[in-house]
């Protein structure tokens, strides 16, 4: 299912003295099956744009096309619920949305809202606790007795239980310790690879965007200013500077190394592993007479 934003603008409290424009003429396409990262500073419009992906916000100008549904500015839309089953959003600090007496009930909440039977919802919940890396015993516990990291996993299971076709992740690793961060990102990547889940990652981590995304869109002051593959995007240091963004740590390191050895490596490396290989290769090359 593709999501397409065409000339989308959005203003909060439109038509009042408190009006605040958050998006300006945004064009953005998320192709089915891709992993897309949206990066930008706090206040760049990232969190406003993500609420358009499942019609939590409707554009004040322009069109949002979600699969075969068209959400147009100024038009009434019925049954937006169906869209929300297909596009799941994991909000920032999703553990704040837990409310049920048990973990099991909380995970079942989403699917049952969309008319899934209790048996089916429960079986999904049982599969998912395992998938998000929690022991089965937690199902009968109160979510409020779990640690912060565990609560987040429960909340994520609750979104996945709706079996969405697209998943939107808003800073999913915020506040986790380094191990938790890595586990979380690897889990979503595995889901993307194994189940072909279309993934949209909203983040300010250049490193995560470089490592996982097929394509990156950059938001700056309410506009989508650049869209490209990570490799091309991170070759354009000057352009990124304009939007007050830094290169991922790994690319900064590569530049430093290239300066030292006096020539560039064949391409921009996006992960530590890739760079290690490229350096080993370059050394072999230089050893050749």
């Amino acid at each position: 299912m593709d999501i397409k934003l065409q000339q989308v603008s959005y203003a909060y409290a439109k038509g009042t003295p408190f009006e605040k424009r958050a998006l300006f003429d945004v064009d953005l396409t998320i192709t089915s099956g891709t992993y897309k990262a949206i990066i930008g500073h706090t206040g760049s419009g990232k969190s406003t744009i993500l609420q358009h992906f499942n019609a939590l916000l409707k554009p004040t100008e322009g069109v949002v096309q979600i699969g075969d549904r068209r959400i147009e500015a100024g038009k009434k839309n019925k049954d937006l619920k169906a869209i929300r089953q297909k596009v799941g959003i994991v909000f920032q600090f999703p553990e704040h949305q837990l409310f049920e007496e048990t973990v099991l009930k909380d995970i079942m909440f989403g699917p049952m809202n969309f008319g899934v039977s209790a048996e089916e919802a429960e079986s999904r919940a049982r599969d998912l606790v395992d998938l998000v890396g929690l022991p089965t015993e937690v199902l009968e516990k109160s979510p409020f007795d779990l640690s912060g990291g565990q609560m987040r996993r429960v909340a994520i299971a609750g979104v996945l239980a709706m079996q969405p076709e697209v998943i939107v992740l808003d800073e999913p690793t915020a506040g986790l310790d380094p191990r938790g961060q890595k586990e979380m990102m690897d889990m979503f990547y595995a889901l993307h690879k194994e189940k072909g889940l279309t993934t949209i990652l909203v983040t300010h981590s250049m490193e995560d965007a470089a490592r996982y995304a097929d394509e990156i869109a950059i938001m700056h002051e309410g506009r989508c200013v650049l869209t490209d593959t990570p490799r091309k995007l991170f070759s354009e240091e000057a352009l990124l500077k304009e939007f007050r963004l830094e290169l991922p740590r790994i690319v900064q390191f590569q530049h430093r190394l290239e300066k030292m050895i006096g020539h560039a490596l064949p391409q921009v490396c996006l992960t530590e592993e890739e760079l290690a290989k490229a350096v080993a290769h370059a050394i072999k090359e230089s050893d050749r007479p």
Partner: peptide, 30 residues
Amino acid sequence: IMKAQMARGSDLSAGSLSQRLKAVVPLLVP
């Protein structure tokens, strides 16, 4: 929180009065 629950299919504006009251719980508890 309201948006997060709406994203999970909760609907505050539809259904009978008792359904609507029930829909407030996922908002109030968090």
